[in-house]
Design a protein around this nucleic acid. Structure first.
Length: 406
DNA sequence: GAGTTTGAAACT
DNA sequence: CAGTTTCAAACTC
């Protein structure tokens, strides 16, 4: 597989901005270690970046630099995973279900070594802060400092992780895509101390599968896009010795659900892991207050996407933070609005009454508080509130029609 | 550590 | 798409 880190030289890749102005004589607010060799690296924090333009203000106080991604992005259109030069699409992606990683914080497969199957990487943003190949890769949630050699073609050995941080494993899943050729669905496993090793740090909780051969999504290793390693599983086929079968299983999962290996948790602000569950949970008996619940386990609130019964995993009034002793589910809150609406309507009053407004506002406020306590970014908080508002409105409209038909 | 409960995934 | 079965993690004792 043609998948080495290539084309990182700005002369070859015009999308990687070269900042020759990042000189040792940096402005005072830029922290440069004493004696640091030129060129030095600096970190572009997520909040410095305009998500719409993908531009950021360089700490050097000079002209803005264009953000670029490292070259190991997936091309779902391609018959194989391959490295893509150039910038990543902005807020929306034209690549089918593959969103712009910057906005989703979802991991993107990094393709570095052929023939290895099991590593994933989080998307990163690259800013070439020097003219000769020194780069800083920035992930919205966790800056990762990589040093790339300046050779026109970078082998994976050229990438060394200087420092990184770690997130809980639940939020890291592979981004396999169904690419037409099963044999090419190959996440990569660079050796230790590479960007791949960074990925290897994630999700290493051993599984205990006995019947699935670790080739179904029941297996957390498999679901996270990892091969089993030091697990307590039996009859495991989620390993290099069973490549063919494993790839077939991956393809099968993707056939059932193209997003099977994508994170189910939408990211919070600046790549934080808190957010909301994309599909929502379906809990019936746990009240969404045990780790059986995927939302609770991910430390996020249930939302209107959930179809849980007796949910207690939400914030309901401003006097309490945390799950409240109540049997009212998230879904039921919408119904409460309907009840108020219908009652008011049948009372020959206007549909939009103070009571209805109050109920709707209460629902929206609950979402806003949840977003706030979940430290979501303003756009995400806004989205949550708007979704709730839309839900309330639809319920009101339904109630109006129902009332009219009665 | 064995048995039970739970809910997602897989299957029909 | 809904209902059922399978599965492995979470939980209880």
């Amino acid at each position: 597989m043609n998948s080495s880190l290539t084309n990182l030289d700005s002369r070859e890749n015009p999308h990687v901005y070269t900042e020759d102005h990042c000189s040792p004589g940096a402005p005072p607010h830029v922290s440069v270690p004493a004696g640091a060799p030129y060129p030095y690296q600096h970190t572009i924090q997520p909040e410095m970046v305009d998500p719409l333009t993908l531009r950021f203000h360089c700490p050097c106080q000079s002209a803005q630099c264009q953000l670029s991604y490292p070259d190991y992005l997936l091309d779902p259109q391609s018959s194989q995973y391959q490295l893509l030069p150039g910038p990543v699409p902005a807020a929306s992606s034209s690549h089918g279900s593959l969103p712009a990683p910057w906005f989703t914080n979802e991991p993107v497969l990094c393709s570095m070594m052929p023939g290895d199957i099991h590593n994933i990487c989080v998307p990163q943003v690259v800013c070439n802060v020097s003219g000769d190949g020194q780069m800083v890769l920035v992930n919205p949630s966790e800056p990762v400092y990589l040093t790339l050699s300046s050779a026109p073609t970078h082998r994976e050995e050229d990438v060394s992780v200087v420092r990184t941080t770690r997130q809980p494993p639940h939020y890291h899943q592979a981004a396999y895509t169904l690419s037409g050729q099963t044999s090419n669905m190959q996440p990569q496993a660079p050796p230790a101390q590479t960007a791949g090793a960074l990925c290897e740090l994630r999700s290493r909780k051993p599984c205990h599968c006995t019947r699935s051969q670790c080739l179904k999504l029941y297996c957390e290793c498999f679901a996270n896009g990892l091969m089993c390693s030091n697990c307590d599983c039996s009859n495991c086929h989620n390993n290099a010795e069973h490549d063919t079968k494993r790839l077939k299983a991956i393809k099968s999962c993707l056939g059932r659900n193209p997003d099977a290996f994508r994170s189910k948790i939408a990211a919070g602000p600046s790549g934080e892991v808190k957010g909301w569950h994309n599909k929502g949970c379906h809990c019936k008996r746990s009240g969404c207050l045990k780790n059986y619940c995927e939302c609770y386990e991910a430390n996020i609130m249930c939302t209107s996407s959930c179809k849980c019964v007796g949910c207690r995993n939400y914030y309901f009034d401003d006097s309490e933070m945390g799950p409240k002793e109540s049997s009212v589910s998230v879904e039921d809150r919408g119904l409460m609005v309907v009840c108020v609406c219908v009652c008011v309507f049948r009372g020959s009053l206007s549909v939009i009454t103070p009571a209805v407004v109050e109920a709707v506002c209460g629902c929206m406020l609950a979402q806003a508080e949840g977003a706030e306590s979940g430290a979501l970014s303003p756009p995400q908080a806004e989205r949550m509130v708007l979704v709730e508002f839309g839900h309330c409105l639809s319920q009101i409209v339904k109630a109006m029609f129902k009332n009219n038909s009665d």
